[in-house]
């Protein structure tokens, strides 16, 4: 697997892909095991109903939690899955160029007949494939959980929700690549993207309760992941297109920026 940058990047991720996939399978089965207890526990519904509206908005409509779609929409699709997968996207994304530079290997790589845009494209495609593999195992894990604990739900809606999380991870991947190229420093880039992720997550989460966040919500990539609740309503094509646009836009920006960038030793 050392024929090109794409395969070398994939090879470097093999161990991570295994553990992340295993982690998502475990999470899926754990939540599926937990669902029957949640759906039968009326005390929790009463407790949630008594919380302030802002907190209730963060949790979601409590009556849905008793259904598989509502439960899984809350967990893992609104919190665990997107936040966890962002760790992967951001750490890998900032490392595409800033990581090679900090390791001191970028000089050797660019001294070979590969274009700067080729380096970014091959690495981003390889990390995207890794993310796709992890999401496929996430889907399989969810499916296994449904079978093991005899939970009935629409499998297409489940796939919609996972595709939406996958697109969110790709958006943050290309945002992270761009940040890594701008700063040429992994720590600074991770700081910036994590800060942006946290703020945009909170804006999206609190938007239903805070009027001034309503407009700001459209600038949050999380809105295009969970705003339409794909597990309940299916994929929103306009959201999917915007997620694709974010990914392509930041990929183009990162390539243009990298082409102009001076690379110091």
């Amino acid at each position: 697997m050392l024929e090109n940058i794409f395969l070398k990047t994939l090879r470097d991720q093999l161990v991570s892909i295994f553990w992340w996939s295993a982690g998502f399978i475990f999470l899926s089965i754990y939540l599926s095991y937990f669902f029957p207890y949640m759906s039968e526990n009326t005390a929790i519904f009463k407790m949630v109903d008594s919380l302030p509206p802002v907190i209730k908005n963060l949790i979601g409509d409590v009556k849905f939690v008793s259904t598989p779609e509502g439960f899984f929409n809350l967990q893992p699709f609104s919190y665990f899955a997107p936040i966890m997968i962002l760790f992967y996207s951001v750490s890998r994304g900032v490392g595409v160029i800033a990581g090679e530079l900090e390791n001191g290997t970028l000089d050797l790589l660019l001294s070979k007949p590969v274009s700067r845009s080729g380096v970014i494209l091959q690495k981003v495609l390889s990390i995207s494939l890794a993310l796709a593999i992890i999401h496929i195992f996430f889907f399989l894990g969810m499916g296994l959980g449904l079978i093991l604990f005899k939970i009935e739900m629409n499998i297409i809606r489940l796939a919609d929700a996972i595709i939406s999380v996958f697109m969110l991870s790709i958006s943050f991947l290309t945002i992270s690549v761009t940040a890594g190229i701008i700063f040429l420093n992994k720590k600074k880039a991770v700081g910036l993207v994590s800060g942006f992720a946290l703020i945009s997550f909170l804006i999206n989460a609190y938007a239903p309760a805070v009027n001034s966040f309503q407009i700001a919500r459209i600038f949050s990539p999380f809105y295009y992941n969970s705003g339409n609740s794909p597990i309940l309503n299916g994929l929103d094509l306009s959201h999917l297109l915007i997620q694709t646009f974010i990914a392509v836009f930041f990929l183009a920006v990162s390539i243009l920026f990298f082409k102009k960038r001076d690379l110091y030793s």
Partner: peptide, 13 residues
């Protein structure tokens, strides 16, 4: 670059 070999001053592998 396809016809050039290079050894950097500060080598990292």
């Amino acid at each position: 670059l396809s016809r050039t070999g290079y050894l950097p001053g500060e080598l990292s592998l």
